[in-house]
Structures are given as C-alpha cells and as structure tokens.
Design a protein around this nucleic acid. Structure first.
Lengths: 166, 166
DNA sequence: GGTGAAACTTGGGACAG
DNA sequence: CTGTCCCAAGTTTCACC
C-alpha cells in the first residue's frame, strides 16, 4: 500500500521540487540518485497526473506593499447547495480573497485576505463582502504576526507513515 | 511614490514568476519586453533583495495522501512576550502545522494543519498541542471543501492602486 | 533505467546610449 | 545604470539501447 502508485524516487522528486522549484533537472537527478532523462520523464508524468499543479515564485507580500492580512469568518443565511456555490464563485472573483475554505461548525467559510492597507480592506469589506446576497454574519481577525508559513505538504510525516505500514 | 523602488518591469517579472516559477529566462524576458541578460540581472537582484523568497512546486496534497486540513484556534493562558515566542517556536517544530498566525481579538493564534487522515491529526491534537504548556483553549474546524486557494499576492490590486497615486 | 547528441538556455564579457 | 549583441559552458530533451 504505497502512497499513490508513487515510488520513493517520485516522492523524493516531489519533496525536492517543493523545497526548490527552480532546481535544474540535472541537479534534481543527482539528488534523487538517477540520471537526468528518466528524472525529467518522471517530472513530466507527475505534472501530467496532477501531482504537481504548478510552480510559483514565493513573493514577499510585505515588501511589495501588502501590509495587511486578514482572516474573515463568514456565515451564510442559506446553506443550500446553489447558495454555497454562488458564494464560492463570488470569492473566486475577488482578488483580495486568496483562500476560501468551507468549514464545519458554526461558521460556514473562512477567507484569507491580502490587502495593501487597512483602508482598502475596509472598502472591500463594506462595499463588496457585506453587500453580497446571502451573507449573514462576518467576523474579521487581523493577522498581527506571521509566525510560520510553510508552503506545501509535510513529506516527513508521509514518509514516517509509509514506514509504519511497510 | 512607486511600489518599493520597483519599476513596472520588475513588478511584471514578479507577477510572471509568481504565476509560473519555472519559466525560462528567455521566455520571461520576452513577456516583460526586454532582452534576456538584463532580465536575469533583475531577477537576481529581486532575489537578493528578498522580493523573491524562493520557488516551490505546488504539490497536490489530496492525491499525495493528505486528506484532511484543519484550522485550529488557540488561546493561551499567558500572553507575555516570552510565552508567545515559546508557542511560536513550538509551532515551527510541528510539521503538521503549516501556518501559524498571531491574531487580534479573542483568539491568540490561528493554525492551519495538514494531515494524512483524521486519526493522525487527532494524535497530534491530544498528544502534542493539548499537552503544550500555556495552551488554554483549542477549537478545531475541519475544512470540508477548498473553494479557492491561490498562492501569492494579487498584483492586479497593486497595479490598480499605483494607477490612482500616479 | 542509462547513453550520446542536437537544440536550447544560462550567464558572462564587451560595448553603445 | 540599463539595454543589446555575442559566445562558451551547461541544460534540456530527443532517439535509441
């Protein structure tokens, strides 16, 4: 019962590319212990099968002028399927909303918003989110400090798990 | 009052690399409208100055076997500086905790956790988080659906802002 | 999975505006 | 200081074993 048809080399490739997405293929091949052509074939396969969804530069929001990050908890009036979908579509259209998670419990959605400053977030809040149909309650929490923000998944947790089942 | 000593070409470079971090330098140069050598020089400068913090492959958590994502709201007993720092350090040492944000309001920290399944999250919760000194209250919210999860910052918001101040 | 070879990319140097 | 042109070293990516 392996991960998902992935062998240890595939997982190593994913872990390496998650840590450094601009690594050259020869460097990657050296690290995972095979030669470059089969390594590239594996990477292409992983991309095609959707294990790798893309590659992104990690841009420093603060120094670029995005000073505020806010979590917004949203409760909806109606939780009918179409109404949930309508709200999700709305979220996708708002550039300030970077993440929209549907949660269990009392709150329906958790949004993570990134904005240049408080006033532009306030504008979004009052002019966009609060005027949206079906929105019942909105509770915002400002991020005071970013203590940890690691992209991707914890491969060490996965490897530890696979050890146990092996 | 531009962004941060960045000209429109720099911002275009950042936006392009955020969208596709594996783009070759010649392709990037073509897109931003300059030739390759100065484009590479700009990229290196942006990296050195910390505007680009790194490059990461965006790995699909679900297909890799990370089925659950949980937001955890943590309240601490003492909010003294050293106690806050101690908790942040603790979060950095837990691989399951991918993000740790210090918030304003009634809750002190919001954690985003990624785990293979509910039981391994439960183990983390009971054996790690709940046994941590100074942790007063813990409230967990399971992510039912990921409606939106876009990496990086909204460059279009930034450009719109710069237009206004220009 | 490995090898070799062609096409391309990177990244430096020399130079012009 | 930023852009252009050119060139060697390294990288990607093919066909083939």
């Amino acid at each position: 019962m392996p991960s998902n048809g992935l062998d240890p080399i595939d997982r190593k490739i994913l872990a390496e590319l998650q840590a450094d997405g601009r690594m050259t293929n020869v460097e990657l091949a050296k690290r995972v212990g095979i030669s470059a052509p089969p390594c590239l074939r594996r990477v292409r396969t992983l991309e095609e099968q959707g294990f790798i969804k893309g590659y992104h530069a990690d841009v420093d929001a603060r120094s670029l002028g995005f000073e505020v990050q806010v979590f917004v908890m949203v409760g909806l009036h109606s939780q009918a399927k179409d109404d949930l979908t309508a709200f999700e579509d709305q979220c996708r259209s708002w550039p300030l909303v970077r993440e929209c998670h549907m949660l269990n419990g009392e709150v329906d959605f958790l949004l993570k918003c990134t904005a240049p400053d408080l006033s532009s977030f306030q504008t979004f809040l009052t002019d966009e989110l609060l005027t949206t149909a079906n929105v019942e309650s909105v509770k915002t929490s400002l991020v005071i400090q970013e203590a940890k923000d690691v992209p991707g998944v914890p491969f060490d947790v996965l490897e530890a798990r696979l050890q146990k089942t092996a």
